[in-house]
Nucleic acid binder design. Structure first.
Lengths: 166, 166
DNA sequence: CGGCATCCTTAGGGATACTG
DNA sequence: CAGTATCCCTAAGGATGCCG
């Protein structure tokens, strides 16, 4: 394992290393989630939206876009499309989060948190908040290490481990 | 304060509430960060990249795109463009993260974490990891409430508070 | 070195109309 | 309700060349 550079937020002389973009995890994640509509659809999925028309209406996107994005997100395994039928009804389909999709929640929450902190969402309609069901406190995302320390931006190192390392 | 719905990851009957998309924090954040190039530039900024040509080369984007995105990110206040000069050189400019920009780090780390967990970044060139400088342990993002409990996806409530609430 | 101008291609996305 | 088909526009992004 080799320490590549120190992330400091503000400035760093840079060690000459580069992100090998072809396999940079961020670049790869962006292959799946890079469009506005993808984020909005995932947002809705977290809110419990499951039907096509609801995605269209609530994310405020057009049908063709919703159809295209849903198809992609299903094929990427973030959502599943499954048939169901209520007692007297015909068979319908609904979209549900997979575990893979649900695991994106920290990213979404990170965006919410950042937006509320910096974009003065003056919330003329009230302030949206995520809360811990058990204790009622607000929920956010934060950096934390495996030893359970809270980690500040300036305390991060970027390392590259040979092959089978953790 | 009013509880709107329970986020469960998998399915929820949905309470009829909608995200009022015009002021949805996610939608607003996406006005700033919705393109691949914006994420890649921010990634590079975290890695310490500061010069125009380095952004172009390391993020693997074209000059016009880099110029456009850098201009936007500066005007949005995520980066600052500042002149500097080394002893015998002419004045140059560099781009640095602002606090607002640096605060986006959890989102980036969330993407890295998700990508490594689900996109089998088999990392034929080694595995990238963020580590806590003090203890060397790997760093990730997680949901946590103000009372410092770790929060699972299914333990989240979405609430809407009247106006000046926290 | 740090861009901007130009041109081009592709992807994202809206509107409308139609179908099972 | 859940899409598909068509058409059109705009934004994202690459390639190339020029310029202070």
């Amino acid at each position: 394992m080799e320490t590549i550079l120190h992330l400091t937020g503000p400035l760093d002389p840079r060690s000459g290393w580069r992100a090998s973009p072809d396999r940079c995890p961020i670049a790869r994640a962006l292959d799946v989630m890079s469009t506005r509509s993808a984020f909005l659809i995932m947002r809705e999925a977290f809110y419990g939206t499951s039907r096509f028309d609801d995605f269209v209406g609530r994310a405020e996107i057009s049908e063709p876009v919703a159809a295209a994005r849903l198809r992609e997100l299903v094929s990427e395994g973030l959502l599943v499309r499954e048939p169901y039928r209520e007692p007297g009804q015909r068979t319908r389909h609904r979209y549900r989060l997979t575990e893979k999709g649900a695991d994106l929640l920290p990213v979404l929450v990170g965006l919410i948190q950042w937006s509320q902190r910096w974009l003065d969402d003056d919330g003329a309609g009230g302030v949206l908040a995520l809360r811990h069901r058990d204790c009622g406190e607000r929920v956010g995302v934060g950096l934390r290490c495996a030893a359970d320390h809270e980690v500040a931006v300036g305390e991060l190192d970027l390392t590259l481990a040979a092959a089978g390392a953790r």
